[in-house]
Design a protein around this nucleic acid. Structure first.
Length: 609
RNA sequence: CGGGAUGUAGCGCAGCUUGGUAGCGCACUUCGUUCGGGACGAAGGGGCCGCAGGUUCGAAUCCUGUCAUCCCGACCA
C-alpha cells in the first residue's frame, strides 16, 4: 500500500478529548475517529490491527477445538425475561440498549450472548453424545455504559470475542476452562502483551470460578493485588488476605460485656474517636448502614459491622446480600449508603448516625414507609473475632468501651467483607505481602455452571436416560480494547511501537526525497520485491520532506523501516527497528534477507518480548 | 445519576472581565525557493462563535434554558 493512497491524516497536537497515551496516539496517528460518546470509527489502519488480532484469536481457539459462529445482535426480550436478566439489564442503571419493533415487541441490542446461545443449545444439544461443544464468535457488542471512557477502552459499541462451552458434567467444564486458560495465555503472548491472570469476581454474568486477564499498565482501570512470589494474584474486588493483628483492648476479654458508656461528643468518625481517647482503630467496630434495592421493589436496610481499621469491599457485600435475598426478591439492583435525609423521608425518627453499634434494634425501622422494617445484619470476620471492642452506643455523643459479642447482641455469621489492601499478608504464605499494580482487563473466563441452562431449561439426556441441565462456561476477549491496551503497553515519546504480530503493516519503506528519480526507482523496486516476498509493506511515496515522513513513521509505529535516501546512488539503504531505534546501513541487495531474518520469528509473536 | 470542567475553522487555542459584527499556530489550495528528523516566503479557501430564547441601537462577549463532550465515582471485554 502507498501512503499517498491511505487517507492518512496525522495530528501534530494531542486532541483535547483524550487523556491517556494510547487514546491520544490512536487519534493522532489516524487509527480511530470519535463519532459519538463511546462510539468510534475504526479507520483502515486500525481495522488491519483488529483483523490480525482476530486471526490470532481464531487460530488459537480453532486449535483448542472451538467452532466459530455468528449470533444475532438483535435479541428478543422474551429470551432475557426467561433468564431473569431483562429487568436488571434494562431498568435503572441497566446497560442494554433496547427498543420496540413495529408490532410493539421489545428487543435488546446484544451486550452479551448467554441467552441466545443457551436457547440454541437447548434446541440442538439433546444427548451427552454431542458434548462437549465450544462455540465462539467475533462481533460488535452494544453496552450503554454508565460512563464511556478512554477511547476504545470502554466503548458503548466494541468488538468482542465471546465463546460458550457446553458439557455433560462439571469435570468436563473444568477441562475446557483450563484449555481456554492456556489458549488465552497464548493469544495474549502472541499479540505481544504482558498479561497476568488474576482471580476475579464473576459479577453480573454469574457462575462460580472466574479468572481475568490483565494487561499491566498505569492507565488500567482495575487494581490488581499480587503476592511477591507470584503464586497469588487477584482483582482487588475479589482479593483475600490476612488482616493485621488487632491491638488488644486494655482490660481485654475479662471486661467484655455490654460495655461502659463513654462520652464522645461529635466524634462521629473512627479517626476522631481514636484520636480523642487513644484507641487503636483495630479496637473498634464500625457499623455501616446501607440500603439494598431489589428487582421486585424490596428495599432492605443493611447493618454491616467491620473492624474499625478495615474498609468495606462492596463487591463482596453485594455477593453476600445476593446469596441471602435474591431467591425471594430477584436480582439485586444496587446497594447505597443510607443517609439521614433518606431516613427522614421514610418517616423515621433520627438514627444515631456516627454512633451506631451492632446492637441497633430493628425497632428504629418501625413505621418505615417502603423499607423492610428489619435489618439484614452482616459482619466481617475481623469484627466478629474481637473479644472486647469499642463501638457506638446507639445514642448520640456516646460510645461503649469493652463491649463483647453475646452480651451486647448475638454475633452475625462471620463473612469476608473487607477489602484486601496492598501490604496485607497473604493467605497462602503469611510471609508474603500483597503488592498493587494496575491492569486493563482484556479477557475474562467463567465457569457458569448451570445457572443459565436451568433458567432457560436447556437440558440434555445423560447416559442414564435422564434429562439434566447443561454445564456451561463462557470466555470473553475485548478485541478492540486489546488493540488499545497494546498501544498503552508499547509506545514511546515519538509514537506507537506495535508488536509485529498485530502491526497494521510490517515494514514502512520511506523515500527520503520523492523528487530524486534514483531514490524513487530503487524504492519502487524494493517495494515490488518485499511485496513478492510476502512482507506487508507500506511505501511512503508522498512528496513530503524527509523529516515529516520520519515523524509520521515513528507515530504510526510500523515495527520495521527501510529508508531509501542519499545512499541510493551507491545502492545503500538504511534498516531501522522502530522500538529500539537500532539502525544499519546495508546494500539494497541484502536488505530483504536482513529484514526477513528478524521479521519471520516475530510474526508468530512467540519470541521473548 | 451525583460532583467538576469545556463548547469559537479539520486539530490545538486566543478573544469574553470592560458588548461595536472574529483572530493565531498547525492542516488545506496555488506559486517560488528548499529537500535526512514536523522548512521558508508570497497569495488564497474555509467559521449561522454548540443550539434556543432574552437584555440591548448592537451579543462570541451579559442573562436564562437546553444539548453535546471530557474528567472523578457505580458498570465491564
Amino acid at each position: 500500500m502507498r501512503v499517498s493512497r491511505l487517507m492518512l491524516v496525522t495530528l501534530r497536537d494531542d486532541p483535547a478529548e483524550a487523556e491517556i497515551p494510547s487514546h491520544k496516539l490512536l487519534l493522532r496517528a489516524g487509527y480511530i475517529r470519535r463519532i459519538g460518546s463511546g462510539i468510534y470509527a475504526y479507520l483502515p489502519l486500525l481495522w488491519r490491527v483488529l483483523q490480525k488480532i482476530s486471526a490470532i484469536v481464531r487460530e488459537e481457539l480453532n486449535a483448542a477445538g472451538a467452532l466459530e459462529t455468528l449470533l444475532p445482535q438483535l435479541q428478543p426480550a422474551e429470551l432475557w425475561q426467561r433468564s431473569g436478566r431483562w429487568a436488571g439489564y434494562t431498568d435503572g442503571e441497566g446497560i442494554m440498549f433496547h427498543l420496540e419493533d413495529r408490532q410493539g415487541r421489545e428487543l435488546g441490542l446484544g451486550p452479551t450472548h448467554e441467552e441466545v446461545i443457551t436457547a440454541l443449545a437447548s434446541d440442538l444439544l439433546r444427548s451427552y453424545r454431542q458434548l462437549p461443544v465450544n462455540l465462539y464468535q467475533i462481533q460488535t457488542k452494544f453496552r450503554d455504559e454508565i460512563r464511556p471512557r478512554f477511547g476504545l477502552m470502554r466503548g458503548r459499541e466494541f468488538i468482542m470475542k465471546d465463546a460458550y462451552s457446553f458439557h455433560a458434567d462439571e469435570a468436563c467444564l473444568k477441562q475446557t476452562y483450563a484449555a481456554m486458560d492456556q489458549a488465552y495465555r497464548r493469544i495474549f503472548s502472541r499479540c505481544g502483551l504482558r498479561a497476568v491472570a488474576v482471580e476475579a469476581d464473576s459479577g453480573a454474568i454469574g457462575g462460580s470460578a472466574s479468572q481475568e486477564f490483565m494487561v499491566t499498565a498505569d492507565a488500567g482501570e482495575d487494581l490488581i493485588l499480587a503476592s511477591t512470589d507470584g503464586r497469588y494474584a487477584a482483582n482487588q474486588e475479589r482479593a483475600v488476605s490476612l488482616p493485621a493483628e488487632a491491638v488488644p483492648l486494655p482490660g481485654g476479654a475479662r471486661s467484655a460485656g455490654s460495655g461502659e458508656a463513654l462520652a464522645t461528643p461529635a466524634q462521629t468518625s473512627i479517626e476522631q474517636l481514636c484520636e480523642a481517647h487513644g484507641f487503636h482503630p483495630s479496637q473498634t467496630v464500625k457499623v455501616l448502614l446501607l440500603l439494598a434495592r431489589f428487582e421486585d421493589g424490596c428495599q432492605q436496610p443493611l447493618l454491616v459491622s467491620l473492624r474499625g481499621d478495615q474498609q468495606l469491599n462492596e463487591v463482596k457485600l453485594a455477593n453476600a446480600v445476593t446469596a441471602r435475598c435474591s431467591a425471594d426478591h430477584g436480582t439485586l439492583l444496587d446497594i447505597a449508603p443510607l443517609s439521614a435525609e433518606a431516613a427522614t423521608r421514610e418517616g423515621l425518627s433520627a438514627l444515631p448516625l456516627g454512633f451506631m453499634g451492632p446492637h441497633l434494634e430493628d425497632a428504629v425501622l418501625s413505621g418505615a414507609a417502603s423499607w423492610t422494617p428489619r435489618f439484614l445484619r452482616l459482619a466481617d470476620a475481623t469484627a466478629t473475632a474481637l473479644e472486647a471492642f469499642v463501638c457506638g452506643a446507639n445514642t448520640t455523643d456516646t460510645h461503649l468501651v469493652g463491649a463483647g459479642w453475646g452480651a451486647l447482641c448475638p454475633a452475625p455469621d462471620s463473612l469476608d467483607l473487607r477489602a484486601a489492601q496492598p501490604g496485607d499478608r497473604c493467605q497462602h504464605d503469611p510471609r508474603q505481602q500483597l503488592e498493587a499494580s494496575r491492569g486493563i482487563e482484556v479477557g475474562h473466563i467463567f465457569q457458569l455452571g448451570r445457572k443459565y441452562s436451568s433458567a432457560l431449561e436447556a437440558t440434555f439426556t445423560n447416559e442414564a436416560g435422564q434429562d439434566e441441565p447443561l454445564w456451561m462456561g463462557c470466555y470473553g476477549i475485548g478485541v478492540s480494547r486489546l488493540a488499545q491496551a497494546a498501544v498503552e503497553q508499547h509506545h514511546d515519546a515519538n509514537g506507537i511501537c506495535w508488536p509485529t504480530a498485530i502491526a497494521p503493516y510490517e515494514l514502512m519503506l520511506v523515500i527520503a526525497n520523492a523528487a530524486d528519480a534514483e531514490q524513487v526507482a530503487l524504492a519502487e523496486r524494493l517495494y515490488e520485491q518485499f511485496g513478492a516476498a510476502g512482507v506487508e509493506v507500506l511505501l511512503d511515496d508522498r512528496s513530503e520532506r524527509a523529516g515529516v515522513k520520519f515523524k509520521d513513521a515513528d507515530l504510526l509505529g510500523i515495527p520495521w523501516r527501510v529508508v531509501v535516501g542519499r545512499g541510493a546512488a551507491t545502492g545503500m539503504v538504511e534498516l531501522v527497528e522502530r522500538a529500539s531505534g537500532e539502525k544499519r546501513e546495508i546494500p539494497a541487495a541484502e536488505v530483504q534477507a536482513a529484514l526477513l531474518e528478524r521479521l519471520l520469528p516475530e510474526r508468530s509473536g512467540l519470541v521473548a518480548a
